[in-house]
């Protein structure tokens, strides 16, 4: 769907089609016309339109029949009705079929561009919603909404909500942030400002297992750097990244407060202390095989054995 701005305008009066074409082309839309329902169907079958503007009262096939056909065979196309006879009855029929909006004839160019612009916004939102639903199972989204509702009335609850939400979804991509913002009735910008400030939150999907390496002073003094390098090399990722197979995410943390065990790392909820390069890789191997240490074990022990 190139540009996602392809429009078909359907009206039995050529002057209406022409004026629509003129007005919307100037706004940068890709627009074509059809003078009957039949012609419209043929064109829709040939092309990928995002929006159809259609008259209701047309000879042969009327607008309602066309709308029914579009709803059935091309449900993703948005529909806006243009009509000179906005009787309650017909508009209601059209609304029941899920049209986005209607433009009463005669219309000014400003009204047409405004309605079109809003129709495209609506289509975009719909597509995003659909994407959310494809990407995240309904049970997950229900749980997310439940979390949001639970905290909704509590002042200052955005951080706990985001913490729980991240537990539910695993990460906080923009679509999820928007859903949370809507639920809490605060602006998405505010939610984003919190997500980007605190290191606990991540906008990227995580692997099945999260490896968090301690960067505390005690760990530093005891040589955590060589261990991080070894893990990076073994997993083929940098800190903050997830392996291609989505098995591991590698993160660092300021201090785990387990300095007595330095150098330390945590995989999911298990702490591994007094690490050597070999011990670190062995620990990771328990979660999913990441390959064998190239250096024979005895030599590594000789390096690190104390």
């Amino acid at each position: 769907m190139a540009d996602n701005t392809k429009i078909l305008v359907v009206d039995d009066e050529p002057v209406v089609v022409r004026s629509c074409e003129r007005i919307l082309k100037a706004e940068g839309y890709d627009i074509e016309g059809a003078l009957s329902g039949r012609e419209a169907i043929l064109k829709i079958e040939e092309n990928n339109y995002n929006l159809v503007l259609t008259d209701l009262k047309m000879p042969e096939m009327d607008g309602i029949t066309l709308i029914r056909w579009i709803r059935k065979s091309r449900p993703s196309i948005g529909i806006v009705v243009i009509t000179g006879y906005p009787s309650q009855e017909t508009i209601k029929d059209a609304l029941d079929l899920g049209i986005i909006d209607y433009v009463p004839k005669p219309f000014t160019p400003a009204v047409l561009t405004d309605v079109t612009r809003r129709a495209f916004e609506w289509i975009k939102g719909k597509a995003l919603e659909k994407k959310i639903e494809e990407e995240f199972p309904p049970s997950m989204l229900n749980e997310l909404d439940r979390v949001v509702n639970q905290y909704k009335k509590k002042p200052g609850s955005s951080i706990p909500v985001l913490q729980r939400s991240q537990e539910v979804v695993g990460y906080l991509p923009p679509v999820i942030q928007k859903r949370i913002a809507k639920g809490l009735n605060i602006s998405p910008a505010e939610i984003h400002s919190i997500v980007s400030f605190y290191s606990f939150f991540t906008m990227k999907p995580r692997g099945d297992h999260t490896i968090r390496i301690c960067l505390g002073t005690a760990c530093y003094v005891k040589g955590i750097e060589t261990i991080i390098n070894k893990i990076k090399e073994t997993l083929g990722v940098e800190v903050g990244e997830t392996t291609k197979d989505r098995k591991f995410s590698l993160e660092t943390v300021r201090c785990l407060g387990a300095c007595g065990l330095a150098p330390v790392m945590v995989i999911d909820h298990d702490t591994y202390g007094a690490l050597s390069r070999k011990k670190a890789i062995d620990a990771i191997n328990q979660y999913a095989p990441v390959g064998i240490n190239e250096t024979p074990a005895e030599e590594i022990e000789a390096v690190e054995g104390e």
């Binding site: 200052g156 951080i159 706990p160 913490q163 505010e190 400030f197 605190y198």
Partner: peptide, 24 residues
């Protein structure tokens, strides 16, 4: 109230901002 990983939140005014649900 569980923090979300920002060292500056150990500073008292920042910590209070954080409890209010804002950037600390």
């Amino acid at each position: 109230y569980q923090g979300a990983g920002a060292f500056v939140c150990g500073e008292e005014t920042a910590l209070m901002r954080s409890i209010e649900g804002k950037r600390g």
